[in-house]
Amino acid sequence: MKKLSQIKHSAAAAPHIVWAVLFILLPLFIVTYYAFTDADGAFSFENVTSLSEYLKIFGLSMELAVIATFVCLLVGYPLAYIMARANPKRQKLFIMLLMLPMWTNLLIRTYSIMAILDDGGILNTILNTSMHIVGTKGAVIFGMVYDFLPYMVLPIYTCISKIDKHMWEAAADLGCNSFKVISKVIFPLSMSGVISGVTMVLVPSISTFYISQKLGGGTFELIGDTIERQFVTGALNVGAAISLVMMLLILLSLAVMNKFTDSEDGGIIA
């Protein structure tokens, strides 16, 4: 009997295993293979060692992504909190409004931002100014925040709305004013939402190439752009090496974040 059920189990899991092998493990293997071979297919460390010239680009990508993620958290957490505490009807409306921009394609949204912020764009025309925005770090960060904010808000919102309503009352009852209710109880309890939000914003922000190309006005090259350029120009091996290093970097930052949540006290704050 037990064997039969085991067979059934594996049969049910088979499509997922096939999927995982075909679209996760195999590509990973291919990326690794390319990263450690040269154009002729011979084993080589050259791609990896050549990465030192991209160090600056790595640094800049990291910097912009971290700032964008931080801004998303700063804007997104209060928004998520207000959403989660609103009455159910309002909550639906809030989610709708938050999701609405996501129904528009990312490229179109980015182009629209460009049209608004450009030197001769809508904003400058309306204000009758000649601000130079596109091509600055600020514009790239703004684009990232605008595009990825929902990915920060939604997991935090879900997490806060799942917290037992009595937590607010218990905290207030034991002496917390409304600020301390959040800082001592609600924020630590919503840490898992914050971690997923940060992950979901940080990862695409690091690897984005489109936003930086359009809103960076060609003055910035981020790591995503570099990878794209490698593949477009046919330098597959270097592209693969950069991708691999970036994956490791992301993995590392996730591990660091998890370290925070797994700690005995249960959160960054405590």
Binding site: D164, H166, M167, E169, A170, A171, A172, D173, L174, G175, C176, N177, K184, V185, P188, L189, M191, E264, D265, G266, G267, A270
Partner: peptide
């Protein structure tokens, strides 16, 4: 406001803080 009242409450479903251990829950106030 609640936090200034000299009364404390034992809630029906206890409302213990899940992110704190027994000691820290009691030490909270």
């Amino acid at each position: 406001p609640t936090y200034k009242r000299p009364v404390n409450t034992v809630f029906q479903k206890y409302a213990l803080f899940p992110h704190l251990n027994v000691y820290e829950n009691i030490a909270f106030p």
